[in-house]
Nucleic acid binder design. Structure first.
Lengths: 245, 245
DNA sequence: TATAAGTCATAACGTAACGGAAGAGTCAAC
DNA sequence: GTTGACTCTTCCGTTACGTTATGACTTATA
């Protein structure tokens, strides 16, 4: 399918699809010799996913992180969408209630507190946003190590790539012993990398590793690269920092 | 109430309230000697209205036009909000249906057309957006005469002011005869003004006047400045163009 | 009553997700 | 063989705030 067909089908603009291509969110693999974008069935499925996330208020950057993640699970995602859409409907219902009340109030039939007047607007009041966060990981793998905050977005993105690279490499060798030469070499890379961002003492480094196992949000995100990676990293990081004191 | 109280109550940021003040959407009348903004009860009611419109996807500029319009009717507005929220809920329901179907599809239980895959996303498919437009006037008075498109936003805004000015003046004299000297002088201003934007022949000018009466969207918007203004303008414009052929 | 914590103000720059127009190539149809 | 409908890339514009930065004001507490 060509771009306008897709746009009409999905109810988005051609410009939007171009934009999604630009930012690498949805880039149709194929191009005709003319240079025209050709969207396959799989691209349509992906677009559907994207639109679900968008409807639920996720920023495109986050959407990209989520669905490009190798461990992204479509079925799980759909079930989460389902939950979040129900929440959203509840919010709308709450707003409808507020409108009804306000109409009555205007007629002088009831009184209304200021709080009631804003019921349904306040996102923080209901679990909607929080739930979304919980379902998809507080801040995603990319910035889960904080500190990154103080850098330019440019720098962050560049680091993000390397970040994922290191995780992938570690995942590959996660069944080796944490104190093996291979593992320790990779962990050193990890330590050096972290110190390009922040300032990690060996102790902090060790503590961070422990957190990978203790904090389930970290565990979940890290294990996306491979089951058991968090534990493996904790052990390798502990060994590394003990050895270099 | 001071700004943070309001922000917390309504679930918006302080910056948002500052922004609304900046653009003149919601400017608390009172200030303490310290310069602090003080929001009254009426301001809260207005904020509620604003948030309803925002929830329904109206841009702030349009919201400002609507609620600052002297003819703005709160009760009517609330009833429209109610309708539009119901629509929105239907859209969510449709999306929920789409998720359910997609899950079944993934399980291999059903087949799914590409159209079904995007049901609920496409705003143009359901009457939601169109209804919103109908309820609040196609493009509002400001740009209902098209042509303005080819100008910088700056210029448009400047013209917008004058635009409203002319309408107001015309409304003041709308009970005089359309061929009176007064009326014809004002209509000439109107003609000159239009030709600063586009290129209106006298015939086009006459036709435009007729449209003010024939197209109920125009009628509605124009008559906001005063009941019967559209008819008055049509007659005055017809007379004017006949006289200057 | 001093002083720190919290809140307020303005100002100015940054960002996200496109919109819209320009200029040029492509494709199907008549 | 020329329209008319699409397509491409490029680039500037816009909306609705977010995010500091800097300085003044208020309030709770030592």
């Amino acid at each position: 399918m060509k771009v306008k067909e897709v746009a009409d089908l999905a109810g988005v603009s051609v410009r939007t699809l171009h934009h999604y291509d630009e930012i690498g969110l949805l880039s149709p693999k194929e191009r005709e010799e003319s240079g025209y974008r050709v969207y396959t069935h799989t691209d349509l499925e992906k677009l559907q996913q994207i639109l679900f996330f968008k409807e639920l208020g996720f920023p495109l950057k986050k959407i990209k992180e989520i669905i490009n993640d190798s461990s992204f699970n479509q079925k799980e995602a759909l079930e989460n969408h389902y939950k979040l859409l129900l929440d959203k409907r509840r919010r709308i219902d709450s707003l409808i209630g507020t409108v009804e009340k306000t109409i009555q109030y205007k007629k002088g039939e009831i009184v209304m507190t200021d709080e009631e007047r804003f019921a349904g607007f306040d996102f923080s009041e209901n679990p909607y946003e929080q739930e979304a966060r919980d379902l998809w990981g507080e801040k995603t793998v990319n910035d889960s190590n904080a500190k990154i905050g103080g850098m330019s977005k440019q720098q962050q993105q560049e680091l993000g790539e390397e970040f994922n690279e290191i995780y992938r490499k570690l995942a590959e060798i996660r069944h080796e012993a944490p104190d093996s030469e291979d593992a320790q070499k990779r962990i050193e890379e990890w330590y050096d990398y972290l110190n390009k961002i922040g300032d990690y003492s060996l102790d902090a480094f060790k503590g961070l590793g422990q957190m990978y196992v203790d904090d389930e949000r970290f565990t979940k995100n890290i294990d996306k690269f491979g089951e058991g990676l968090a534990v493996f990293m904790r052990d390798a990081m502990a060994y590394y920092s003990d050895m270099h004191q």
